[in-house]
Design a protein around this nucleic acid. Sequence first.
DNA 1: GTCTATATTGAGATAGAC
DNA 2: GTCTATCTCAATATAGAC
Lengths: 180, 180
Amino acid sequence: MREAARRLIARHGFAAVSMRKIAAEVGVQAGALYNYIPDKQTLLFEIMQAHMEELLTARAELDAPADPVQALEQFTRFHIRFHSNRPDEVFIAYMELRNLTPENFAAIEAMRRTYEDQLTEILVAGVAAGHFRLAEPRVTTMALIAMLTGVNTWFREEGRLSLDEVEGIYLDMVRRTVAA
Amino acid sequence: MREAARRLIARHGFAAVSMRKIAAEVGVQAGALYNYIPDKQTLLFEIMQAHMEELLTARAELDAPADPVQALEQFTRFHIRFHSNRPDEVFIAYMELRNLTPENFAAIEAMRRTYEDQLTEILVAGVAAGHFRLAEPRVTTMALIAMLTGVNTWFREEGRLSLDEVEGIYLDMVRRTVAA
DNA sequence: GTCTATATTGAGATAGAC
DNA sequence: GTCTATCTCAATATAGAC
């Protein structure tokens, strides 16, 4: 059910997807969905929450990098790979924030902030160690994440470039952006 | 009316905004809106179309830059300034593409592609002149535009940094990304 | 050109049979 | 645990009075 909802919401938007359509996709009647969720809002929140938790968990499972330079490479490759593998979830996580209740919004935002802070810490450590040069770690964090997430807007599995090649190209741009 | 629709759609999403709410914002009844547009879809399309036309017109009115290096600076500053001045329109133009009919979608996409091509041309010319070094002009175009548009997700007029300062920081990152 | 009124459709959610 | 049936509300769009 959550899988069906994810696909439909990513394609049409949360407000445009009715419980009836989700039920039809699953192969049941609308009433049956309410055995699993109390309301539509909860469904959206759970999709976003699961996505953000997967993101933070997957990051936590990576090997500890030797230095900030390796940490930056690891972050870059991880971000591109994780997000390009989940276009629907990423789309929803960015587009449907406004459809969350204030409490649910705050919870998702806190997780996103936690993730962003990991890149900021890498940048600050790299500057301290003399590997990187940048004036505003927070601005650079937002700029790099926007750049990397942007891969999702154009990358296609069947395209000319493989994801490995794309990772390499973006890694080069990231390194230049912060190089000492 | 279009102004009211823009504000509401940016905040709640196209599907979540009813003609009644737009009418209430304007101060009339819902039926009266249909003297100005044939249907809701046309309203969305006209908002997006007007935005893209303004974008292309504003670009066309800029002075011709002396070389690719200046062209890149001009593009960067223009992009940040134009988009940060119109957060609602930018949000709608990126988020509501899926709510356009196929014909309307194609029209908006063509205009967006025209704009992107302008940056690609600057990059290619800069490479040819030996100012820039980059492997994939099209990938770099998408990466830079994503990075620059990302300013809208965090920049606030009341914040610590002025828009001028932000422009300078992003210009530095853009230059590094393509530097020979 | 805007109003009221309405036709028609579909939304979220619930009740109760099975 | 899923169904049918339904409550209540609100949606887009139109008709016709003024």
